[in-house]
């Protein structure tokens, strides 16, 4: 009996691990590419072990362009990403509470508007949007990269709304009877119960913002203010020669912060699962 269980467990782990390897193979290839020679990368061998180990990709890559190193790009990325992620969580919580819990006039209207904002391709609204920030005198600068994140992000507002639906109304009603206002229900009941949703928002938004390059491209102009996402693209050029080794090296480095954030917050999604659930 117990032997059977052990075997099943082993199979489970082998399967999950093997499949996991297949999943991350392309990423491993990129990391190994960061130690490869340009020609080896272009030849497209699928081996993970470089023929000749070339660590200089990291130093040439880190050097950056014309005296601006990746230290600067990383610093800029951190500033923008952390503030924007904070803004997203804060504003999306507020808005999702209104849209899912409060019966106010225009609720459906605003919800429809919110969904509609996601349905137009960025390419067609990008320039009109740029002109607004430009007329407000905010270009070039970080404000256009950060301000919208304090206005709620549709993807996360809707996500939080769906999670709030899982919180029983009886809790609100009980609190109202105890004399709680809508405001204190939000701070005392909703927010503490929204932890898993907040954590997913942080993980996903951090990565998205970190990876976003259209925003920085439009709204930043001095190379000293570039973020990592644009800087990596500067290695590639269709009309001349691309240093793939250096590009892979910096792509690998740029993966580290997002991965650490994930590792750090992921435990909130695993620990004590099925114990913290709300008793219905």
């Amino acid at each position: 009996m117990s032997e059977k269980r052990v075997i099943r467990k082993v199979i489970y782990h082998i399967f999950v691990l093997a499949f996991g390897f297949v999943m991350i193979y392309p990423v491993l290839w990129m990391i190994s590419g960061s130690f490869k020679d340009n020609s080896e990368i272009l030849r497209g061998t699928l081996a993970l072990i470089p023929e000749t180990l070339k660590a200089t990709n990291y130093s040439t890559g880190w050097k950056g362009f014309g005296g601006t190193t990746f230290a600067t790009f990383f610093k800029n990325s951190f500033i923008v990403t952390i503030i924007a992620t904070f803004g997203t969580v804060l504003s999306s919580l507020l808005v999702s509470y209104a849209l899912s819990r409060i019966q106010f006039k225009g609720r459906k209207f605003w919800f429809t508007c919110m969904i509609a904002t996601m349905m137009l391709p960025g390419q067609v609204i990008m320039i009109p949007q740029y002109l607004i920030y430009y007329r407000l005198g905010l270009v070039p600068g970080y404000v256009p990269l950060i301000l919208p994140y304090f206005c709620g992000q549709a993807f996360f507002i809707y996500q939080m709304m769906q999670f709030m639906k899982g919180i029983p109304r009886e809790l609100d009603e009980a609190a109202t009877i105890d004399g709680c206002s809508k405001y204190s229900i939000f701070t005392h009941i909703i927010i503490p119960l929204m932890k898993p949703s907040i954590v997913t928002t942080v993980i996903i938004q951090f990565y998205w913002k970190w990876d976003d390059y259209m925003g920085p491209l439009l709204y930043l102009s001095r190379p000293q203010s570039y973020t990592v996402s644009i800087a990596i693209k500067l290695f590639a050029d269709a009309s001349s020669i691309t240093d793939y080794g250096a590009m892979f090296a910096m792509s690998t480095l740029s993966l580290i912060p997002v991965f650490l954030i994930f590792l750090f917050f992921n435990r909130y999604l695993v620990d004590g699962i099925r114990n913290t659930g709300i008793k219905g």
Binding site: F65, M214, P223, L234, A238
Partner: peptide, 18 residues
Amino acid sequence: EYYSFDDYFTKLKTLVAS
């Protein structure tokens, strides 16, 4: 300022607009 090819023209188009 310097960019990759596609980015350069995206940026240029916004600057033309403004």
